[in-house]
Amino acid sequence: MLTGGRDAEFTEYVSARLTTLRRLAYLLCQDWHRADDLVQAAITRLYVHWGRARAVDHTDAYARVILVREFLSERRSPWARRVTLREQLPDAAGTVTDHAAVLDVRTALAGLPKRQRATLVLRFYCDLTIDQTAQVLGCSAGTVKSQTAKGLDSLRRALEPMGAPAPDRGRLAAQGRPGRGGGE
């Protein structure tokens, strides 16, 4: 096995995590093409900071922070950071289960502001606690709670049939417990 050396270690790590990073990016932006751009930009930054990334206890968490912040800064920053990838697209298109429900879900999620979307993805897909989510997003725990409540409310309005009773938003947002698996 080829080990040692910055490049080999980096390549090995990214190869092993690529699927996870792509899925996370896809949930953030709902577009595989953009997701790949996002991952490309994130792993380039990861390479630059690889010395620090491999030294921390949770390299995965470090990579996730880079990816999420890359996503959040994509349009917030006045300086375009988008990376232009090779123009040729892969020949074989992937199979996508575009049934109506998935489209509804995608549309609902896409309708959320970026920070709300990132908050929900980190809390309920990555299973991060409120504090962990706040750390990734670089904001306070209170902000995570309010973003979670707003995000759930927006999803609810988009996906639930008219007239469905809304649960207690404040209670949901304030729970602050990790989801399944208890986070990292």
Binding site: L18, R22, W32, L89, G94, V96
Partner: peptide, 12 residues
């Protein structure tokens, strides 16, 4: 459900 979308080949 969204994450279950089969991804196309990676361009990364």
């Amino acid at each position: 459900r969204l994450a279950d979308d089969a991804p196309p080949p990676s361009r990364v």
